[in-house]
Amino acid sequence: MIHPALRFSVSSNGDQWYLARGNGPDKTTVVHEANRSSGGAVTSTSIEDFMRVDLGSPERQDFIRLVADLLGCELDDRKARKDVLLIQLRDATEEDAANALLGAKVQLPLTTPYEALEFFNCMVDVVTGQRAIEVGEDAHRIRPGFGSTHE
């Protein structure tokens, strides 16, 4: 079964190319749909094979632009999330700090880098509302035993 596809190129003769994701070993493929006058055949190929053939083709260049655009959007989204986190941390109140200390393995005054990191992680949890996240879902955090709020 093929899931909805993203069209990334249309030739002057009406051929179309899509990036498609399906269930199975070749999850993401490039689908070529020939124009009606040439039969309208639909073929699917791996991204690797698509990138190896006809290096100067317009559809290959369109695919490269698509990947660059998608990557750019992802990087912009990550930067925006980081900017929001910084604003949340800068806007934190004394009450937020007190709430962070409730779940921390440290107390004030903080005297070691470990304690500062533990407190920082707890502050991030408080200002983002992520304190209830389970360890298995929280793999992006610092590993347990190294300033992590998780045991």
Rank of each mutant, 00 (worst) to 15 (best):
A132C: 14
K79R: 14
K79Q: 14
L110F: 03
L117S: 09
G129T: 00
C73H: 05
L117M: 12
P109M: 03
P58W: 02
R52Q: 15
K82H: 15
V126Q: 04
V127H: 01
I64W: 08
R90M: 12
Q130R: 14
K105Q: 13
L117K: 12
T93D: 06
R60H: 09
V124Y: 01
E94S: 13
D83R: 07
R52I: 15
E95N: 14
A98Y: 02
D54M: 14
V53F: 15
A68C: 11
A92D: 01
E137R: 13
E74T: 02
V53Y: 15
E115N: 04
L71V: 14
V67F: 07
V124G: 04
A98H: 08
F120V: 03
V127Y: 00
E94K: 11
G72N: 01
K79P: 05
R52M: 14
N121W: 06
R78S: 13
P58G: 05
L71W: 10
R60A: 07
A100P: 01
D83H: 06
D69M: 08
R60W: 06
D54T: 12
P113C: 02
C122E: 05
N99D: 03
L89V: 07
T111R: 10
R81F: 06
I133N: 14
D62H: 13
Q107P: 01
N99C: 05
L66N: 07
A97N: 09
T111Y: 02
E118F: 15
Q61R: 13
F63Q: 06
F119E: 00
L89Y: 05
F120K: 07
E137P: 10
L66W: 10
